[in-house]
Amino acid sequence: MVEDDLKQLLIQTDRAAGPAVAPRADLASRIRHLDRRRRRITMISEPIALAAGLMLAMGIFFWTGKKPISIAKPQAVPPELVQNTGIPEVPTTTPDTKAELAQMSLALVQLQAEAETQMLVVRQLRAWERQQARLAELERQLAAIPDPLEEVRRQVEQAAYTMVYHADLKYNKLNLKDSAIQDFQRVIKLYPQTRWAQVAQNKLSEIRYNRKGALL
């Protein structure tokens, strides 16, 4: 009953959600167009990606290979050599350079923080995927365990068959006819739902028929 109620609830919710999307008359032609476009993009993007990769590698190579610009502290000029030309002293670093360096440091810190966040999410996603894979594996193992009811049915059939086989052997080969008849009757009593019960019944009918014929 609960399953029916659950089904009804889902169906009602589905109806409440309404239709998915309006059908498009031109979907087939859009698909063909999309297929052509993606094939073209794939053909073009591979060499572009290769070229971009090469340029990036070269850029990194040159950037790391460059020597750092050292801003040397200018030597102090002896006062006797300074002529009164009014040339002002050169400062060690300009305000623009300081500001630029500060901006670059800030940008670097921000990039690092973003990269760490994204890496964290990627790690979580991978952990989740591993968990899902493990769950799927456990479910497969669970499904591989044979159904106990099925196993019991199979064993019942096997037992009924064995009994019928031995009864038949007793009747035909060992001449233990009374014992065989009892065994056939036991199969019908103990295993009525199996097909061997029907076989035992047929055997008993055959025996009775033969005996009647012998009496006549």
Binding site: L9, L10, Q12, T13, R15, A16, A17, G18, P19
Partner: peptide
């Protein structure tokens, strides 16, 4: 929000079932 007529199911119930699914 649900697109169809809300007489079939109220908004809160719809949201609950959808979030659960």
């Amino acid at each position: 929000p649900p697109r169809s007529d809300q007489g079939v199911m109220n908004r809160e119930t719809f949201d609950r079932v959808r979030r659960t699914l």
